[in-house]
Amino acid sequence: MIQHLQLTPRFVKGVPRELEPGVLYVSMEYGTVVHSCCCGCGQEVVTPLTPTDWKLTFDGESISLHPSVGNWNLPCRSHYVIRNNGVIEAGSWDQARIKAEQRRDKAAKAAFYAQPAELPKPRAAISTDTAPATTKPGHADKGLWAKLRRWFC
């Protein structure tokens, strides 16, 4: 049963030792969102913001996290969605579904982090007797920009 149906976002540099119930601590510096479990058990819930974990949406007033928060390793095993600062209780999962999601998550991380990081290619020296080459907007090194877009979107 969910006790906290509304969360107040608080942007912080670092997460405090004592978590205030009903507060969603967002640390952009550490790329993480932390809160006290919405069921009221008081356990700390950490949702890292990475391309393979959670994504945060902030519209200037409210926060949404995707995907849902499944606290399968906590005694409460609560499961909920955080959308526009609201907490929506989600159905419980059986052990088979939890294990399947953990395998999918592990495979997604392995695939993403196995990709070699593409660095921008070094520019050739420009001599003064030739005009510099022009590039069309949007035709920069697509590998690096595509990874950055995936990271932030």
Rank of each mutant, 00 (worst) to 15 (best):
residue 28 M to I: 05
residue 26 V to W: 01
residue 73 N to G: 07
residue 88 I to S: 07
residue 35 H to T: 10
residue 85 N to L: 06
residue 98 I to E: 00
residue 50 T to M: 06
residue 35 H to P: 01
residue 82 I to G: 00
residue 51 P to S: 05
residue 75 P to G: 03
residue 66 H to M: 11
residue 95 Q to M: 11
residue 49 L to M: 11
residue 65 L to A: 01
residue 75 P to H: 01
residue 62 S to F: 10
residue 36 S to G: 08
residue 29 E to M: 11
residue 73 N to V: 07
residue 53 D to Q: 15
residue 51 P to W: 04
residue 76 C to Q: 05
residue 75 P to T: 01
residue 35 H to Q: 13
residue 90 A to M: 12
residue 92 S to P: 04
residue 19 L to S: 09
residue 84 N to R: 13
residue 33 V to N: 05
residue 17 R to P: 14
residue 69 V to Q: 13
residue 66 H to S: 12
residue 46 V to L: 07
residue 21 P to K: 13
residue 57 T to G: 11
residue 94 D to P: 01
residue 23 V to C: 04
residue 68 S to C: 12
residue 20 E to M: 13
residue 50 T to K: 11
residue 62 S to R: 15
residue 11 F to M: 10
residue 28 M to W: 10
residue 96 A to N: 06
residue 10 R to H: 09
residue 48 P to H: 13
residue 67 P to L: 03
residue 93 W to E: 01
residue 78 S to I: 00
residue 51 P to K: 08
residue 96 A to M: 02
residue 77 R to D: 02
residue 52 T to V: 15
residue 77 R to Y: 08
residue 42 G to D: 03
residue 91 G to T: 02
residue 43 Q to A: 08
residue 12 V to D: 06
residue 51 P to F: 11
residue 40 G to K: 05
residue 27 S to I: 02
residue 64 S to M: 09
residue 60 G to Q: 14
residue 54 W to H: 14
residue 17 R to C: 08
residue 95 Q to S: 09
residue 96 A to R: 01
residue 80 Y to H: 12
residue 30 Y to P: 00
residue 69 V to M: 11
residue 56 L to I: 14
residue 57 T to Q: 14
residue 37 C to V: 03
residue 94 D to H: 08
residue 72 W to C: 04
residue 57 T to F: 03
residue 19 L to F: 09
residue 43 Q to R: 11
residue 66 H to I: 10
residue 71 N to E: 14
residue 15 V to D: 06
residue 84 N to H: 13
residue 60 G to H: 14
residue 52 T to Q: 03
residue 45 V to C: 07
residue 43 Q to D: 14
residue 17 R to K: 13
residue 17 R to V: 13
residue 41 C to E: 04
residue 21 P to F: 12
residue 27 S to R: 13
residue 28 M to N: 13
residue 82 I to K: 00
residue 80 Y to P: 10
residue 34 V to D: 01
residue 86 G to W: 01
residue 81 V to I: 10
residue 56 L to S: 06
residue 29 E to Q: 15
residue 70 G to L: 07
residue 49 L to V: 07
residue 91 G to A: 14
residue 38 C to E: 05
residue 80 Y to K: 03
residue 71 N to K: 06
residue 28 M to H: 08
residue 73 N to W: 08
residue 74 L to P: 04
residue 40 G to C: 02
residue 71 N to I: 01
residue 15 V to P: 00
residue 48 P to E: 09
residue 79 H to Y: 07
residue 63 I to N: 01
residue 76 C to D: 05
residue 16 P to D: 12
residue 25 Y to W: 12
residue 52 T to N: 03
residue 61 E to H: 15
residue 62 S to W: 02
residue 25 Y to M: 02
residue 87 V to M: 07
residue 97 R to V: 03
residue 63 I to M: 11
residue 9 P to Y: 05
residue 13 K to M: 10
residue 62 S to A: 15
residue 65 L to H: 06
residue 45 V to H: 08
residue 19 L to I: 13
residue 18 E to C: 04
